[in-house]
Design a protein around this nucleic acid. Structure first.
Lengths: 107, 107
DNA sequence: AATATATACCTTGACAGACGAGGTATATTG
DNA sequence: CAATATACCTCGTCTGTCAAGGTATATATT
């Protein structure tokens, strides 16, 4: 991984919410998606991911349910809520602003 | 402040180094500059700033010296070293890459 | 039949960076 | 002479990350 966790830090929750906008998903899948989308430069470690799920659930931004897989390991799916969509939009606006500010600060 | 410290987190050292590229400066000044450049959206709190100075000095990226002010409070100036300039370039490249990756992850 | 790998979930404790709260000292302004 | 601005600093707390460990199912390899 080349992107440090300190750079990714403020974006963990936004990244997860983003992955749930179009369809429900589960931890393992989200983890793989993130790595694939960034050619393995970004990774949310499992412990990080699951603690973020707890926070997001606590905040009411996602809802969890167990999938009914016939074969293989069970999956815990997450669905984004309406509040979650609102939070995502807010995170997204913050990111656009932060991006400009950091660009300005790093000349 | 609107930009959260978790978003700024990975950039603290790069931001400080950036401010020292053209001329030496000191804590209080750098602090004000950052706020001014971002219309008060970004701020490195004093405790954060000074602990970052320690890390940067430890790493050999900056050198510290006391200014010889005739009036007013004494100032501790910082100068960027050659290694510091190298580190800044590296931070900067990381940022450009991270920016793209986060953009990709936040759709 | 045993081993390794992939899928899939989880918890605990340690660590590092941010920062609130507190401190010191000098100079100016009301 | 009190308040504000400039200018430095430390200590202890908090939060998010993550290494290390665990459980269970299924497939591929040896």
């Amino acid at each position: 991984m080349s992107i440090t966790s300190d750079i990714l830090r403020g974006h963990t929750e936004a990244i997860i919410l983003s992955h749930l906008l179009d369809q429900d998903s589960y931890g393992y899948q989200i983890n793989k998606d993130i790595m694939k989308k960034t050619d393995n430069r970004c990774e949310l470690k499992e412990a990080t991911l699951y603690s973020a799920f707890r926070r997001l659930e606590q905040a009411g931004y996602i809802r969890a349910y167990w999938g009914n897989e016939k074969v293989g390991a069970r999956r815990r799916y997450y669905a984004i809520t309406e509040e979650g969509r609102g939070a995502y939009q807010s995170y997204k606006r913050d990111w656009e602003e932060a991006k400009n500010d950091i660009d300005r600060l790093l000349k």
